[in-house]
Design a protein around this nucleic acid. Sequence first.
DNA 1: GGTCGTTTGTTGTAATCGCAACCATATGGG
DNA 2: CCCATATGGTTGCGATTACAACAAACGACC
Lengths: 172, 172
Amino acid sequence: MTQATTETERSVKAAFEGLEGGDRGGPGTPASEAWGAFLRAHASLMRVLDSELVRGAELSLSDFDVLIQLRLADGARLRMSELARRALISRSGMTRRAGQLEERGLVARQPDASDRRSVVLTLTDDGAQVLRRALPVHFSGVHAHFLDRLTDDELSQLRDVLEKVVIDCDFG
Amino acid sequence: MTQATTETERSVKAAFEGLEGGDRGGPGTPASEAWGAFLRAHASLMRVLDSELVRGAELSLSDFDVLIQLRLADGARLRMSELARRALISRSGMTRRAGQLEERGLVARQPDASDRRSVVLTLTDDGAQVLRRALPVHFSGVHAHFLDRLTDDELSQLRDVLEKVVIDCDFG
DNA sequence: GGTCGTTTGTTGTAATCGCAACCATATGGG
DNA sequence: CCCATATGGTTGCGATTACAACAAACGACC
């Protein structure tokens, strides 16, 4: 995977000439290399972290996301839409994920008194316990593959740079 | 829309609450903020870029990935496995994606004379033409949402930092 | 030549996800 | 009060993906 980078970026040059692209963003530039690293980093990190979490805590990264977002919310309760927004998934995706988690007894659906359209999701005791067991697994993975490889300065740089390219858009 | 998100990419904004992992990695630190920005940036960028590409060139980002990797390869020809590796997808995923692209006449399957197990994918004239029309669409999107928002220094930083966290792993 | 382990591509299967459509509810103006 | 519009959640549906298992072919070795 790392090797492909070099190869790719070398040949990118030939492929993109004739394209109006210009210098910035052209092949072999920091731009294209940054883009490629961005894609590779995400793909490989997500795969490994999910795999580790499933093996170590019998929880997918998607499920973990919902549980952790619930736990971080005030009172460990959130409406479906808000939860979907925070977990970066669609509302329909949230519906199905909540259904699975509810079947496992990790979350509970409750009607919202102030808005009868809404459904409020809460973390059950079992859910909190499962989350407690999953946290160190995920934590050690993020440490090993992410935090331990970067300095504090690099993390700050990464945060600042990436926040500039976040697009505010709907997710479903 | 076509699925811009590959696997599991969710927001885990501050996944380390309640852990005594020390300050590094705790909520509100550059670590967790960088991680959250990483996830949000990828999710939103992929969604928007895929959407723009589908609307502007009738090509999903996944299909584009295959075509561009073929184009960048020497002679615009690659074995399935190598193509899958470069496109960050599994071999089975590559099989099916190649099947679709072949049906559309954008790529052609050829036997590899030197290894009868292998199948070599080549870019057809139609495929090259579709790719030519797709390139400016994708590049303008990458420019608008990524490159134009960052300086050269920031792109170099991003590349250097992200390459440190790329994990060399199999994708299928 | 024969054998074992590896690699290559494909397929069955199951899981996931988003979009569009839908109903229920809420909200703001006539 | 009534209607138009917007929002919240669910469901049907199609599309995509990875994992595991498989056969064919390769390669190293004896």
